[in-house]
């Protein structure tokens, strides 16, 4: 049925001041229709103030098989977090 309709990923900004967040996907003939469908499917209860739609084919994703290579190196770098440093209780405002 939708052979000719492009799959779009939908991102919604729920309130101004917040980032757009992925909420799901839908099919549409073009970008304009994708925005309208996203409005109907994902914002029936004021869930959004702004919508992005992106053709799913345009998204490049990391491979779960490479997760270790990509994310493991950060594990032993605890010194990147503020809690790594012991500061005496007497010292304030730091």
């Amino acid at each position: 049925m939708n052979e000719d309709w492009v799959l779009y990923e939908v991102f919604i900004r729920s309130r101004s001041g917040l980032e757009h967040k992925h909420v799901g996907s839908l099919h549409a003939a073009d970008a304009r229709m994708a925005i309208e469908h996203a409005r109907d499917a994902y914002t029936r209860r004021q869930e959004g103030v702004s919508i992005w739609v992106v053709p799913s084919s345009a998204i490049v994703a990391s491979d779960p098989g490479e997760a270790e290579a990509l994310f493991e190196p950060a594990r032993d770098k605890v010194y990147r977090h503020p809690t790594f440093y012991a500061i005496p209780d007497e010292v304030k405002n730091i």
Binding site: N2, E3, L7, G24, L26, A41, R44
Partner: peptide, 21 residues
């Protein structure tokens, strides 16, 4: 809308929405 959310979830498993319909 619920039907649409669910078709969308099913599609992530590699099945075409047109085939399901």
């Amino acid at each position: 809308g619920h039907g649409m959310y669910l078709y969308s979830a099913a599609e992530t498993l590699g099945v075409a929405r047109g085939d399901l319909i």
